[in-house]
């Protein structure tokens, strides 16, 4: 991996940027997402989420299981507004 290796393809975030953010103290995937937008694009972190957690674990010397992934938010996959608007009338929380 080099400085320029793309980690988040949706938002063009590089390995170098992720490492720099960790050095600035952003050592959780939630903070990283808000600072760099990695995980805010079309894939919603499904491609880059684990990669970022791995980099955080390696750089902070913790185990991967101790780096929580960011909150997974609906919809499960990008969905057209027209489909969402036509959803049958039902309540879930």
């Amino acid at each position: 991996m080099t400085e320029d290796t793309i980690i988040c393809r949706c938002e063009d975030v590089t390995y170098g940027q992720v490492v720099e953010a960790i050095e600035q103290g952003f050592t959780t995937t939630e903070e990283m997402k808000r600072m760099l937008r990695c995980g805010m694009g079309a894939c919603q972190g499904r491609t880059c989420g684990r990669l970022i957690a791995q980099i955080i674990a390696a750089k902070t010397g913790t185990s991967l299981s101790q780096v929580p992934l960011p909150t997974s938010r609906p919809p499960a996959a990008p969905t057209e507004l027209a489909i969402l608007a036509g959803t049958p009338h039902e309540e879930t929380s």
Binding site: M40, G41, R73, P74, P75, P78, E80, L81, A82
Partner: peptide, 10 residues
């Protein structure tokens, strides 16, 4: 916007 996709809600 009918074909535009929603990616996230919060």
């Amino acid at each position: 916007l009918h074909r535009v996709k929603v990616v996230r809600q919060w």
